[in-house]
Design a protein around this nucleic acid. Structure first.
Length: 424
RNA sequence: GGACAGGUGGCCGAGUGGUUGAAGGCACCGGUCUCGAAAACCGGCGUACCGGCAACGGUACCGUGAGUUCGAAUCUCACCCUGUCCGCCA
């Protein structure tokens, strides 16, 4: 969430932030309301604390009198009245504080100044790599996948539903090769610590990274236990340090995790539904970094380059987009999307979204660091990105590396993991 | 799932209704000593919020949330978590 102090001290900056996202209409009045609530709650806090101070003094006086054997009945009676007053004021405070907090949870992060204003049409291509094959020059991946027996879509739908995939034979094997290649790359070459984390997390974790309370309908929830299925391992990995104060000397911290990801994709029904384009469950290797505010711009560049490098090694033509403010996620301050080209589908596919959250998540999740012994804790900056998401990478491989006879050449870096040069 | 034990500051650990934000120790920071270091000694050392230019003052926080009381780390209730044993299952 954004800093509550911004409401008081920099409300204009908040308004400018939502305006750049193109949602001033939506949030402007909320910010007005927050300013009013902030004044109310501070006035009430002063009243409550004043009375509490009086009560504390009275209580101590009661103790002194009783010790001295004096009568304290009168004092106790007046303290009791103070107590009733306090209870009333606290109810009042809880109301304005509660509404104030819920507004803070609703407001999106303020994007960085270099992020272009406006909606997705203002996204800019920062760089491109590789030579995409002509759109339509090869079969879409679902056709070759079926022909090669890599996927079993009907049975995935039978045992779970649409959007759930069964990989078979070389298809399953390719997934495993990709996982091993990516984890080895990020741990051995780029210095990430490998983790394995729970796929079900509690409400506090989902709130910490910003999925809740706003996007609850996008999450799978368990019926009998208070758990949510993770939409990305960003959630458990970032929450690793929730409510902790890290030693500044340990920053930056770089973690990677392979996990299954679960997304309801509510509201996305009918969009990009074919093949591997949009699934309810998919595999992903995630990169997460914790850093200082000063270092976070450089850390975003570094993290993005790691994801890009994975695509370079795989030999997949791709490009980097800087998202415009209006297309930048709720919790993000700046996002680069990496897209690979899928010549069979004929479009660019997002395979990684690398973002700086500045202190937005750290404030929600209460993740801080102590710059040096004896110094005050500060919020860290969190960053993450996919490195990479599997299904669309697989789709791109099946199309980009597709041969005339509908066999598929295995990218060189995967061969040691896959054990064959060609899928036929 | 059942029984018992327990959750206190960065860590260990004392504390069963009243100057306890919390003894003591460790760690950490500053200093004395030393050529330097160690040891020893002295001092400091939580977080958040409210007010204040500041110095500083106030409030809250002893797993979480309610409650009793003039007053709760201490009493009551619910929940969460950890440990041990039993049961069940992989």
């Amino acid at each position: 969430m954004i800093d509550g102090r911004m409401v008081r001290e920099q409300a204009d900056l908040l308004r400018e932030g939502v305006r750049r996202r193109g949602s001033l209409d939506k949030f402007g009045s909320l910010i007005d309301r927050a300013e009013q609530l902030d004044r109310e709650r501070r006035a009430t806090i002063q009243k409550v604390e004043e009375r509490k101070a009086a009560r504390n003094t009275a209580s101590q006086e009661v103790a002194r009198k009783k010790k001295a054997g004096e009568n304290a009945d009168e004092l106790m009676a007046s303290a009791r009245e103070l107590g009733a007053d306090i209870a009333r004021l606290e109810t009042e405070l809880a109301a304005s504080q509660g509404e104030f907090d819920s507004i803070l949870y609703e407001l999106p992060n303020v994007t960085l100044s270099e992020v272009p204003e406006g909606d997705a049409s203002h996204n800019t291509v920062v760089s491109t790599w590789g030579e995409p094959r002509a759109a339509g020059s090869v079969k879409p991946h679902w056709e070759v996948a079926e022909a090669l027996g890599l996927l079993d879509l009907p049975r995935g739908a039978k045992i779970s539903g649409s959007g759930f995939i069964v990989y078979r034979n070389r298809g399953a094997h390719l997934q495993r090769a990709l996982m091993n290649f990516l984890l080895d790359l990020h741990t051995r070459e780029f210095g990430y610590e490998e983790t394995q984390v729970p796929l079900f997390v509690n409400r506090d974790s989902m709130t910490g990274t910003g999925q809740l309370p706003k996007f609850e309908e996008d999450m799978y929830a368990l019926r009998d236990d208070a758990f949510f299925a993770i939409p990305t391992s960003e959630v458990p990995v970032t929450n690793l340090f929730r409510d902790e104060i890290l030693d500044g000397a340990t920053l930056p911290i770089a973690l990677t995790a392979f996990s299954q990801c679960f997304r309801r994709e509510a509201g996305a029904a009918g969009k990009d539904t074919r093949g591997l384009l949009r699934l309810h469950q998919f595999e992903k290797v995630e990169l997460v970094r914790f850093t200082t505010p000063e270092d976070s711009p450089a850390q975003l560049e570094l993290l993005t380059s790691h994801a890009e490098q994975a695509l370079v090694r795989l030999g997949l033509p791709h490009r980097r987009l800087l998202l415009a403010a209006g297309d930048t996620g709720f919790s993000n301050a700046k996002t680069f999307d990496l897209e690979v080209f899928a010549p069979g589908v004929g479009t660019w596919l997002e395979v990684s979204s690398c973002s700086s959250y500045t202190d937005f998540q750290a404030r929600r999740a209460n993740i801080r660091y102590r710059p040096a012994p004896g110094e005050k804790p500060r919020h860290v900056h969190t960053l993450n990105g996919s490195g990479l998401g599997f299904p669309r990478v697989v789709a791109s491989i099946l199309e980009h590396y597709q041969n005339a006879d509908s066999s598929v050449t295995v990218p060189e870096v995967l061969r040691p993991y896959f054990g064959a040069d060609v899928i036929r």
